[in-house]
Design a binder for these strands. Structure first.
Lengths: 192, 192
DNA sequence: GGTAACTCGTACACTGGTGTTCGACAAGAG
DNA sequence: CTCTTGTCGAACACCAGTGTACGAGTTACC
């Protein structure tokens, strides 16, 4: 709130730039500042007036995406049977992953290394907590580190997004496929 | 063999460029032709004398990588218990994935869309055949399409490569983690 | 040892991006 | 109504890369 003195049209433009950037970067991770400014109905100079560099713009968009994503995830009921809770969590996060796929790529090569992982910490923690609980209740396997299980979940979801983009599966099939795969992958191995 | 008339030093240079390119692109997917030429101990002009464009160079490197990879994979014994065979296949392909990770990225944004998938068809078929056999023997699940299982395998391995790069797991741990994860993921679901 | 094939460095034209500067102009706040 | 804040377009400097042209020099081949 250091800048309570911000003219109304400036605030409007900032918002327009942010949503336009989210949109452009969502379609093409390499979208230029010109494209974004044009899409926002704003001059390129104005854009640089609010965001000192392309990188800081990408960062702002990414931060915003994480925030809205986390809000959505916050509404998921994670109580009860961990397996059911995981299904619900997948159902929600899946859409987010699909949606922010390209934006993630943009962030990965515009932002300093580690920054992306740093901003992911919040949502990650939510998943970790659920997995930990499932492990302590012997519903999820404990022979592999939790961080690995999180990574697997992450990668399977991103893989599903790729498969959709390549037209090999449809958007509807994704969630059930992911759920079926991960529940099996996370089940404790039988000591035959 | 249209070009039996190729001077010896030219052949040497082509080979040097190819291996240098594999090396550079393996470290930085965006490596420039200058970097590659320098690494090959060759002028940039010479490089363009053999490869009409950066894209064609990347393509050549990628083709070569696939070929050597396929050769390695061809030596894996895929007979016997499909689960054991899968373990062996993972053990081998895992190293390849880790090694060619960055090169894959380079290929993905230098080559026309679909080209990468096209060149991947060979190795993919090998995996598919094994999975199909496992499915027909009721060792692998049949409630999900084979192509999806292949994709999962692919993504889990790439994810492991990321985890190593981020320093969250070591190279030694990767193969057992991947194997444990995929065997569980591919096991037919119990109709509890 | 002659010749064709090849290589080299430098220089050039071109592209497509980033970030800045300028001065004229509009729009909001008090 | 005024004055500050913000916006606009066009121009500029800059950078990093790609691909080409040239001419001199070198290397393999026969």
């Amino acid at each position: 709130m250091t800048v309570t003195t911000r003219r109304a049209d400036a605030q409007r433009n900032i918002a327009a730039i942010l949503t336009a950037a989210a949109d452009c970067l969502g379609r093409d991770p390499g979208a230029s500042t010109s494209e974004i400014a044009k899409a926002a109905g704003v001059g390129r100079v104005t854009l640089y007036g609010h965001f000192p560099s392309r990188a800081e713009l990408v960062d702002a968009v990414f931060v915003q995406a994480i925030a809205t994503g986390e809000e959505t995830l916050g509404q998921v009921d994670l109580t009860g049977d961990p397996r059911d809770a995981l299904s619900r969590l997948i159902e929600s996060s899946w859409h987010l992953v699909d949606q922010y796929r390209a934006l993630l790529l943009a962030a990965q090569d515009a932002l300093p290394p580690g920054r992306v992982h740093e901003l992911h910490a919040g949502p990650m923690a939510r998943v970790e907590r659920l997995l930990e609980r499932g492990r302590s209740e012997n519903v999820f396997r404990t022979d592999l580190p939790t961080s690995w299980l999180v990574s697997v979940m992450h990668n399977v979801m991103h893989g599903a997004a790729s498969e959709i983009q390549a037209g090999r599966i449809t958007s509807d099939q994704a969630a059930p496929y992911i759920t079926a795969t991960l529940l099996a992958a996370f089940t404790p191995p039988q000591s035959e």
